[in-house]
Design a protein around this nucleic acid. Structure first.
Lengths: 134, 134
DNA sequence: TATTGTTATACTCTATAACTATA
DNA sequence: TATAGTTATAGAGTATAACAATA
């Protein structure tokens, strides 16, 4: 059954990821914007570590997002080597819109469940969260 | 809370996906091999439909896997346009090994849970499966 | 004509290696 | 010397458009 649960979670996550569309950003670009929204301004190194990607790869993604006006680079006042990356207003707006749409999709799926089924999921949430821990 | 559950599932799936490594195939190539193992020999069109990818994209992935000796193409005896794709012995072996390793990783995560927590997940499985339905 | 697979081309995302600037 | 970021280059994975072969 272990295997069943693992595969089901993978399949569900895959379906969720297909619900993007709104802006035509790839998943990596969207992931960076969401990381900035959740964890605030960060250096390139922090971003690449957290997203588990190499620095050159993150640099490229950041370049694309900067060119789209969704984030901005600023020099660190404390360390001339570092660059602080943060969302622009447009970046914040895009993150909010994306979250709203994904939540709506997921809520629609949940609405097909019975009260009991929703209660079961509610009970499972802390356990799933524990499994997902680093 | 809807949003919490959605994000937790996404995060858990992401952690699982990072557990690959064994062979250095990307997730797409591995996905094709697993699809062939689970659902048997298929045409290119069937594969691309099921993996939700365009035919040229699937064709490219199949080319790489064929070059690696993990699958083979054969002409359909009934329809000259169709190509039947199936795993080689090496492909089967790779799928088995991958499944074994991912299951082991997941089982190790599950072992950190209490009996009660595992029971909660067990109850949630059919509900998650329902959410993941097409 | 319609369908199946393929080739051509282009863009995103990833990596490693090598370089620049700062500490 | 070591660290932070960047550039150069290459390969995987995705797409659309155009083509060949078969039904």
């Amino acid at each position: 059954m272990d295997s069943e649960l693992r595969l089901t979670i993978a399949r569900l996550a895959r379906r969720m990821r297909q619900e993007r569309a709104e802006a035509d950003l790839g998943p990596s670009q969207l992931g960076v914007l969401i990381a900035l929204a959740v964890r605030g301004p960060q250096t390139l190194g922090e971003l690449s570590t957290h997203e588990r990607v190499t620095a050159p790869s993150m640099n490229r993604t950041v370049n694309l997002l900067e060119a789209s006006g969704l984030l901005a680079r600023a020099a660190s006042p404390f360390d001339g080597r570092k660059v602080i990356i943060d969302l622009t207003d447009a970046g914040h707006a895009l993150v909010d819109e994306t979250k709203r749409r994904r939540d709506a999709w997921f809520a629609e799926r949940l609405s097909s469940l019975s009260d009991h089924e929703r209660a079961v999921l509610d009970a499972a949430l802390p356990v799933l969260r524990k499994l997902a821990e680093e």
